[in-house]
């Protein structure tokens, strides 16, 4: 990157309040750590953007925003920067949009290591490139020690939904098939273990990844796809509850079909947690008409982000309980929304 070829003006190793004071220190931090990496061609801020897709009749603009907080800031399989890009890109992608541009706003706690910031920013740039988006504008603020948790990032994203594409949970119909693109709960389990206070070590990595290419592959193979959502906070269970309620259908999951890593199951058994409620950051759930289910499955399995894709359930008629699960044991149980946050338990 260009930043590497210029002599560094940044003398500090840690962020101080003067990096947010509007003076030379702030300019140096922003230029060296952020803009040189995100916009190596030296675009001006206040992005003025053009894209041919916007001029296509019937195309629609998609716009989304999300804030990211995570402890620890770096974890196996990613960091807060990668998360902030993937999260917003995926919000756009699951709505059927092709993500184009992102903004990134940082709230940095005084005392944060500048080397850490550089790693986070590099990871954002890498992920943006992989997802085919550009980070075109941004902001930084510095807050006093104790007023933040290292770094908070807010990203907003703009994308274009091509003409004729219409995804939405309200379009889900009885008989539609529910699929996921990969294993469940890796992110939530990784973060729990990475915090260290439970003293558990696992080989797990966050599933954090952009789903742009996966969504395009699915929509090409299964153009009748009704809806997609990324199963982030609250896990698959909460996402399905929201979708079922929006659609006025019920969903029955098949426990035996749920793709779960052994280690995630193990961690859940140890701590008394339910993997259906663990967060994912690169896992989506799709509803497609039954006739296109196999095509959607095959399209996902053909690319790395969908290697572990599976058909996990089916939409049924409206009912009192939105989501239930046929257990591997032959019973049926309710899969409710998450109450509060899952806490490790002994009983």
């Amino acid at each position: 990157m260009n930043a590497a070829s210029k002599p560094s003006r940044l003398r500090d190793t840690h962020v101080t309040l003067s990096h947010g004071g509007g003076g030379r220190a702030m300019r140096d931090l922003i230029e060296e750590v952020f803009t040189d990496v995100f916009r190596p061609e030296g675009d001006e801020d206040q992005a003025r953007l053009t894209d041919a897709a916007l001029a296509t009749p019937g195309a629609r603009l998609a716009f989304t925003t999300d804030s990211f907080v995570v402890t620890p800031l770096e974890f196996p399989g990613g960091d807060i920067g990668k998360l902030a890009v993937c999260g917003t890109v995926n919000d756009l992608a699951v709505g059927g949009a092709r993500p184009l541009w992102l903004s990134a706003a940082f709230i940095i706690e005084e005392g944060t290591e500048i080397a850490l910031l550089r790693r986070i920013v590099a990871s954002m740039a890498r992920e943006a490139e992989a997802a085919g988006v550009r980070i075109v504008t941004g902001d930084t603020k510095v807050v006093g020690r104790g007023s933040g948790d290292g770094v908070f990032i807010t990203t907003s994203g703009v994308g274009v939904i091509p003409a004729g594409r219409d995804l939405g949970a309200a379009r889900i119909r009885e008989g539609d098939v529910a699929l996921v693109n990969g294993v469940l709960g890796d992110h939530g389990a990784t973060i729990l273990a990475a915090r260290g206070d439970l003293a558990l070590s696992t080989p797990l990595e966050s599933d954090c990844q952009s789903l742009t290419h996966l969504m395009e592959a699915v929509l090409a193979a299964a153009p009748g796809t009704r809806a997609a959502r990324d199963a982030t906070r609250g896990g698959l269970a909460s996402t399905l509850n929201e979708m079922a309620e929006a659609a006025g259908v019920t969903v029955e999951l098949d426990e035996a079909a749920l793709p779960l890593r052994t280690e995630v199951k193990g961690l859940c058994e140890i701590l008394g947690l339910d993997p259906l409620y663990l967060a994912n950051e690169g896992t989506l759930v799709l509803f497609v008409p039954e006739a296109e289910a196999e095509a959607a499955l095959a399209a996902m399995r053909a690319i790395p982000a969908g290697r572990d894709a599976a058909i996990v359930g089916r939409a049924g008629p409206r009912g009192a309980v939105p989501v239930t699960m046929r257990t591997a044991f032959g019973g049926q149980r309710i899969v409710d929304m998450l109450v509060g946050e899952q806490l490790p338990r002994i009983c």
């Binding site: 003293a199 558990l200 070590s201 280690e263 193990g266 961690l267 058994e269 140890i270 338990r345 002994i346």
Partner: peptide
Amino acid sequence: MCLGIPGQIIAISDPARQMGLAEISGVRRE
């Protein structure tokens, strides 16, 4: 009461404190 799960002892980590490393479905904990 009392969640208990099977795990396999894979090493003795601190003999003085009688601590060992257990593996439960690929997850390790002392």
